[in-house]
Structures are given as structure tokens and as C-alpha cells.
């Protein structure tokens, strides 16, 4: 019934070569490390900037709130790829020349900070009003209230959302290949154009992404449980 699967004109395309796969493995592993570094650095930027964007949208200064909200909307409604190109290619015209790595980190970090700011905002809004009032009754300043009362309680409900974007950022790192960051796709492309063999490299890249993404959901859930326990909630 499935004989056609094994006809000669179809099957040869599947000529997987283990020796070749073995040979390119070190290069791909190095690229994996680069991908992980890119994702981690971008994510760290996004975590910090995102928090500030979320807080800036809650200040009493209307212009700040308005400007930040518009910025977030703008970034969220334009493609990441465009933002990467913009920072890397258009930046120099304004006297800002950055390496592919730095441009990439900034683009991806800023892009995701806008998404993370929404997650933070949700977390902050989930803190009951009574907590703010209790902090006022203790005469805490706004800064102290955020730092000691609101943010610690806003984090646990935000962890799942923040974690999803960690996987998202990881899967978006291939976009950095367009400006020459040597992450996985960039390396697989390079291998392809050097050797005219694509099957092994792309398959292995797919498996690497899969293996790294799959456990993420479970780990994030475990981390959320850990944080909640740690905070006694």
C-alpha cells in the first residue's frame, strides 16, 4: 500500500548522511550557544525595560503615560524584522552604528519589552486595591509600595505570561540571521551554501529548537510554583 514511498525517484532525496551530520554538529552546537545567548540577552533587556514601560504607563504624568502607550502600540503593530533592519541599517544615518549583535539585542529586547510590559501591567492590576491602601496606611511612599508590596505580588501571576515570551523570543532569534548574527539558522544557511547539503543542517536545527522549547512550559510552571512557595502565597 505504501510502496510508492519507496520508489526510487522519491526516496533518494532522503539521503541522510550521518557522517556529515556528525561533522557539522560542533558548528551547530556553537550556533546554539549563540542563539541561547541572544535569546537570554534580549530577554533580560525585555524584562527590565518592560517593567519600566509598565510603570511609566501608570505615572500621573499624562504626557509620559501617553508617549509610552503610543510607543508600545507602535512597536507591537510593526514587524520585528522591520525593527531589526531599522536599527541596523537606518541607525548609522543618524550616527548610531552598532554591530549586528548589539543591534539585534536591542531590537529584540525592545520589541519584547513592549509585550512584557503588558504582562507586567496585568500582574500589577491584579494586586487588590486594599494592598495599596494598607501601604498608604503604613505611610509608605509610592516607590516603597511598588518595590515592597505591589511588584512582589504582581510577579507570580505574571510568570506564565513572561515565560511564554521567553519561548517566543527564543524562536524569533532566527530573524537576527538577516543582519548576520551567527545563530542557528544563519549557521545552517552557511553550511548549505558551502556544501549544497541542506537536509541534515535544517533537520538538526529543528530538533535543537524542539528539544530546547519543549521542556520550557514545564520548567516555567515549576518556577512559578517555586516563586509562590517562596513568597508564601
Amino acid at each position: 500500500m505504501f510502496d510508492w514511498l519507496f520508489t526510487d525517484d522519491w526516496f533518494p532525496k532522503f539521503d541522510w548522511r550521518w557522517d556529515f551530520a556528525w561533522e557539522i554538529l560542533p558548528r551547530l552546537l556553537e550556533a546554539t550557544l549563540n542563539t541561547l545567548i541572544a535569546a537570554a540577552a534580549g530577554y533580560l533587556i525585555a524584562l527590565v525595560v518592560g517593567l519600566f514601560l509598565a510603570l511609566a504607563q501608570r505615572t500621573n504624568y499624562r504626557t509620559v503615560t501617553f508617549a509610552v502607550r503610543e510607543f508600545v502600540e507602535f512597536v507591537r503593530s510593526t514587524p520585528l524584522l522591520l525593527q531589526i533592519f531599522f536599527i541596523f541599517y537606518v541607525g548609522p544615518q543618524f550616527g548610531v552604528t552598532l554591530s549586528p549583535w548589539v543591534s539585534g539585542m536591542i531590537a529584540i529586547g525592545l520589541h519584547y519589552s513592549c509585550y512584557l510590559s503588558e504582562v507586567y501591567r496585568g500582574g500589577i492590576e491584579s494586586v487588590p486595591k486594599g494592598q495599596w491602601e494598607a501601604a498608604t496606611a503604613l505611610n509608605m511612599s509610592t516607590l516603597q509600595t511598588y518595590k515592597r508590596v505591589v511588584i512582589p505580588q504582581a510577579i507570580p501571576p505574571a510568570i506564565a505570561g513572561l515565560g511564554n515570551y521567553l519561548v517566543g523570543i527564543f524562536k524569533d532569534t532566527p530573524m537576527l540571521s538577516v543582519i548576520g548574527v551567527a545563530e542557528l539558522i544563519h549557521t545552517a544557511n552557511a553550511i548549505g551554501s558551502e556544501t549544497w547539503r541542506y537536509l541534515e543542517a535544517y533537520t538538526m536545527v529543528g530538533i535543537i529548537f524542539l528539544v530546547l522549547s519543549l521542556p520550557a512550559a514545564g520548567l516555567i510552571r515549576a518556577f512559578e510554583g517555586f516563586v509562590r512557595r517562596k513568597l508564601g502565597m
Binding site: 494592598q131 491602601e133 496606611a137 505580588q153 513568597l231 508564601g232 502565597m233
Partner: peptide
């Protein structure tokens, strides 16, 4: 307060 409003993480 009526609903105590203790800080749950402390």
C-alpha cells in the same frame, strides 16, 4: 480594614 489587607507575601 474590614478585610485586613495584610501583605500575603510576608
Amino acid at each position: 480594614f474590614q478585610h485586613f489587607n495584610l501583605f500575603p507575601h510576608m
